Amino acid sequence: MKAIICGAGITGLSAANFLSANGWDVTLVERSAGPRPEGYMIDFFGSGWQAATHMGVIDRIREVGYDVNRIDYVDSNGRSTAHLGYESFTKVVGDRLRSILRPDLEQAIREVLPDSVELLYSTTITSIHDSSAAATASGGKVDVELSDGRRLTADLLIGADGIHSDVRSMVFGPEADYFKFLGFHVGAYSFRDNRVKDILANRYAITDTCGEAMFFYRLRDGSISALGVHRTDRRERPDDIQQEFRERYRSLGWLCPLALEHCPKSFYYDQVAQIRMPCWRRGRVVLLGDAATAVSLLAGQGASLGMAGAYVLADELAKHAQVPDALAAFEARWRPQVAEQQKAGVSAAKWFVPADRRALLMRRLSMRLIKVPGVSRLVSGAVVGKIGAAL
């Protein structure tokens, strides 16, 4: 059986690994010229941890990940206004939690990619003819044309090319039909500054602010990972993201002006949104990860869901003789899990970056309540969710 996967991020690489392990011949197509260095720190746990265990990369994730002591919310002078120890979460997930940079997680998966997987960088899919149109001519195969002029025929095409998926646009219609903007923009970059490095220590430091917030973490090489999230009614990306960042975050005080001195002209920047689709499959084409089910940065677990979804898809393809039957079973099994996490993402938007001082004070109160015996497990359990059920 032959599969073509569009997108060599966490989801696409995971799908390539799991399908190849089940005997599939896999071609992986990626627009970028090589592995992408941009990315922010994520908390990796939940169903993705189980999937990573099946893949055999857990030890590597533990090695390159970080043990964070606590989350500190700070005012414009750097004083802590609220904090949360990571033990609140480890009580629920045990040691199955690691903070890790997205590029490092991608690299861990890429390292175990079998040699049999054909990985094509600087390549896009320019046309798709799925089985519903090509069944008579090619026995239900899916035919694609690549930007390098090659034509490939496969039993399955997986669109794992992210929230702005080209496969989704070509097969299912315009992005606007499925794109739910949540009212935030986000940007992330890393920089070096000894003045900042010495202040952070082993913690997430977050500005305790309304409307916009910056997040900082010191990496083991001494550089600083910075992420900014701000509320906005403007859906489109600004023309000058560097100017936008500097104007939006300079007034937050503390380390922000220093960090903004290092803000580059080009860095990761995007809208915070979800993808809502009534169906993820058509013929022999299926969408996976953010292309089908983006939950948003606010919900977290996007990487975890991408890996776990890839495992579930491969598992259903192994169980069913016919690809369309496997795709239907995959969606029936995985959709309830994703819907739960998307719902959590919309709810999280209310406190992730508070809209006003009242919401900010409520967040501070919640952070204090989580330290109360019994409440900690309840709140942390709500954050962790039940997303592992499908595995």
Rank of each mutant, 00 (worst) to 15 (best):
residue 311 Y to Q: 13
residue 176 A to E: 15
residue 223 S to R: 13
residue 353 V to G: 01
residue 47 S to K: 06
residue 391 L to T: 10
residue 127 S to L: 04
residue 9 G to D: 09
residue 94 G to N: 11
residue 385 G to I: 09
residue 97 L to C: 00
residue 149 G to M: 09
residue 236 E to V: 07
residue 27 T to N: 03
residue 306 G to E: 03
residue 351 W to D: 11
residue 198 D to K: 15
residue 336 P to G: 14
residue 305 L to R: 05
residue 253 G to T: 14
residue 154 A to H: 03
residue 1 M to D: 06
residue 191 F to A: 12
residue 134 A to I: 12
residue 285 V to M: 13
residue 169 S to G: 03
residue 174 P to K: 11
residue 74 V to A: 10
residue 249 Y to A: 08
residue 50 Q to T: 14
residue 150 R to Y: 02
residue 241 I to Y: 00
residue 241 I to Q: 08
residue 390 A to Y: 05
residue 308 A to C: 15
residue 88 S to A: 14
residue 355 A to H: 05
residue 181 F to Q: 09
residue 320 H to Y: 07
residue 323 V to E: 00
residue 96 R to M: 11
residue 368 R to Q: 15
residue 113 L to I: 13
residue 354 P to M: 13
residue 377 R to D: 13
residue 265 K to T: 10
residue 56 G to S: 10
residue 182 L to H: 04
residue 33 A to E: 11
residue 382 A to D: 04
residue 171 V to S: 10
residue 264 P to R: 09
residue 188 A to T: 14
residue 231 R to W: 03
residue 331 E to F: 01
residue 141 K to C: 08
residue 54 H to G: 04
residue 326 A to C: 04
residue 278 P to N: 04
residue 304 S to V: 08
residue 384 V to L: 10
residue 259 A to I: 13
residue 214 M to K: 01
residue 231 R to S: 09
residue 345 G to P: 02
residue 170 M to D: 14
residue 60 R to I: 02
residue 93 V to P: 00
residue 56 G to I: 08
residue 39 G to K: 06
residue 342 Q to Y: 00
residue 9 G to H: 01
residue 152 L to H: 02
residue 146 L to P: 09
residue 36 R to D: 08
residue 25 D to Q: 14
residue 339 A to D: 15
residue 3 A to K: 01
residue 272 V to D: 06
residue 157 L to H: 06
residue 8 A to C: 12
residue 13 L to R: 08
residue 104 D to H: 12
residue 115 D to K: 12
residue 18 F to P: 04
residue 278 P to G: 03
residue 110 R to M: 09
